[in-house]
Nucleic acid binder design. Structure first.
Lengths: 152, 152
DNA sequence: AACGCTATTGCAAACCACTTGCATCTGTCA
DNA sequence: TGACAGATGCAAGTGGTTTGCAATAGCGTT
């Protein structure tokens, strides 16, 4: 991990500026998010945080996620399973490829696609405000390997 | 309209093959869908159909949509507003651009983007099963005058 | 045309993810 | 330290969608 504390700290300042408070709960949730390398949903975040503070409530998680989202600290995604999933927003823009068998989410980005999107929108008389691009696929079974390398 | 009855008829055969029945309700809902040129949600479909048959229930609409989807007769989309919206599936594949101000849905398709998606997925070791691409944007106000007063 | 089997329907209750009202608690800042 | 507005926990509420159940109605058969 790289600088979870700094992240939390930075966010605290951001909150202050908005007249909001840095509470224990928010600190905890922030930490959980910073440590997550997947895309957990509210319940998942709650579970992880609850382990550190059994007084935490699920509504606080939801409320916190809303605050974090409004502050631009996290991004919310709703994949096909319907629930909202979150990830911290301090990374470059990217889209997602979801493994329909394992649920694993892989991130990718494609400037070419983005450019095409903008072009298409423009042709239709629109300017893109945001977009949603999700690929649902399955792993391609490695086509017979010749020199026996163990696979990942 | 172009061949709503044929569509309904064709679907009836399809149902039969699956051991399912063509009921009045399904006929009605099918008709409503065929006549729709937008992307109505369950409630919308229900409202339109209810006007023709006040005994119809919302649960039947939901159940029917599920049947239709499984049979491949319609496609279900969940845009950002969260509710499921439907459209009949007898048209070419396309994606959607949603006007964030009016909610209007514009359809478009881009073989180039699809190609890029496949390429990206392949590079990640995946084959795409399906995808979701939605552009959210706002209409560009016609840039009539160039030098000077910005209206609004 | 009536029969019987079972898919389908309507209704109400259940679900689920998420939100909210309210009384209490707790950051923050003077 | 005190006061006040923001934040929390709990429970109840929402809104979209699903489901259990008894009644109904397609559809192949007689």
């Amino acid at each position: 991990m790289k600088g979870i504390d700094q992240r939390v700290e930075a966010f605290e300042g951001q909150l202050r500026k908005a007249g909001l408070r840095m509470t224990q709960q928010r600190r905890l949730i922030l930490r959980v998010l910073a440590e997550a390398d997947d895309h957990p949903d509210a319940k998942g975040i709650f579970t992880r945080a609850f382990a550190h503070d059994p007084t935490l409530s699920l509504s606080t998680v939801y409320r916190t996620m809303k605050v974090l989202e409004t502050q631009g600290a996290i991004e919310r995604h709703a994949f096909e399973d319907g629930v909202s999933r979150y990830e911290h927003a301090d990374q470059a823009h990217h889209d997602h490829l979801i493994d329909i068998e394992s649920g694993t989410v892989v991130e990718f980005s494609s400037p070419e696609i983005e450019a095409l999107q903008a072009k298409i929108a423009a042709e239709l008389g629109y300017e893109i405000v945001r977009h949603r691009l999700e690929l649902y696929g399955r792993k391609i079974k490695a086509p017979r390997r010749k020199a026996g390398k163990k696979d990942a």
